[in-house]
Design a protein around this nucleic acid. Structure first.
Lengths: 192, 192
DNA sequence: CGATTCTTTGAAAACAGTCAATCTGTGTGG
DNA sequence: CCACACAGATTGACTGTTTTCAAAGAATCG
């Protein structure tokens, strides 16, 4: 699974053998079974995570026990909790595996050292952050301006690959509606 | 107004006279009157903007002519459209001044040069980006998990300083509800 | 196969949006 | 200083959307 990670990196930047070695030295490989937790509410989060294969979700649980999905992270995506990572405070989120997954963990300070020593990696990380920000803004825009049905259509357009890998109620959670409403939206949509 | 900008920067990082000079050379000062546009849908956006004083808003206009407020940027905040800046594609957003404002514009390539020459500035910019991302994620979380009333309370908590500087209907737009609904929420809340 | 999870359905209630009218406060020009 | 226009806020009646709760059906996993 480290191979997937290096493939991903070399697709974006070119790395010397020494640099790959440096990365390898601090990369922790981990397998997660379906439904296994990687992070739980209250933990302090200290890693950067790359998903080599599988699919993770980041979510909160509210006072009524309802799940709210913040992020879906399939293979070749990064995940974690930036807020907890940056502030050092306990996280309000959970991360678990929707599918059996293989991931790479790199501890915060190790990751920062790598970024210092490998400027290209630093640039890549910043580019990813920039892109993530733009994606977030776009999701906010959908949330404040679209109807439930439009949000669903928007989800399908943006995540065609993920749509068939997760139960419907998770899509509902991701776009902020109830599963029942999603069922009804779909029924109406197919009528047309 | 350039002074405000330098004060802001020196509060975060320490700069030599030469560095300040370099920044000054590429900083464009601009005044905006209330309701004046800085950016319009369809434009290609090429700047980084620091707000020295006043208050700007970033918004889209949908097919029905309704305004959806993406961001509110008071003094000491940055604004602009990262998506258009990054991709070079026309923006879907508008930015205008809610109050008479003074801003500093720095053209994209000039800004990138500054960041290369002043590593501290680069770090600051990345830290701001990181923080903006976390704030976005939090707003998404509010949008998918809170009721209209809770979103309003959340807004009041997060923007105590801005609340009294903008008309209510803009708060409604920011949290994705109608002005009428906001009126009713407020009426119910004061009853309690 | 049995257990669990997921989806669908129905009926009722809660919530939010629309439209049109009125009310309020502010600022401008005569 | 007043009258008026204008932008914003509120209200009411109505419509439409979404949630809730409970139950039944379908699909999936071990």
């Amino acid at each position: 699974m480290f191979d997937f990670f290096i493939k991903y990196l070399q697709d974006k930047i070119s790395l010397s053998k020494e640099e790959i070695e440096m990365i390898h030295d601090v990369a922790i490989e981990k397998k997660l079974r379906r439904k296994q937790y990687l992070l739980q509410q209250g933990d302090i989060w200290k890693y950067n995570v790359f998903v080599s294969s599988g699919l993770l979700k980041t979510f909160s649980i509210d006072n009524e026990g309802k799940e709210h999905i913040m992020n879906l992270s399939p293979e070749n995506y990064w995940t974690g909790d930036r807020a907890s990572l940056m502030t050092g405070k306990p996280t309000q989120f959970n991360i678990d595996a929707i599918e059996n997954s293989e991931i790479i963990l790199i501890e915060k300070t190790n990751f920062e050292n790598l970024c210092k020593k490998i400027p290209q990696l630093n640039d890549l990380v910043n580019a990813i952050l920039q892109k993530s920000f733009i994606v977030s803004q776009d999701r906010i825009h959908s949330q404040i301006s679209l109807s439930a049905e439009e949000k669903y259509q928007d989800f399908l357009k943006k995540f065609p690959t993920i749509t068939n890998r997760i139960p419907q109620h998770m899509i509902a959670s991701y776009i902020g509606i109830t599963p029942e409403t999603l069922t009804r939206i779909r029924r109406n949509a197919t009528k047309k």
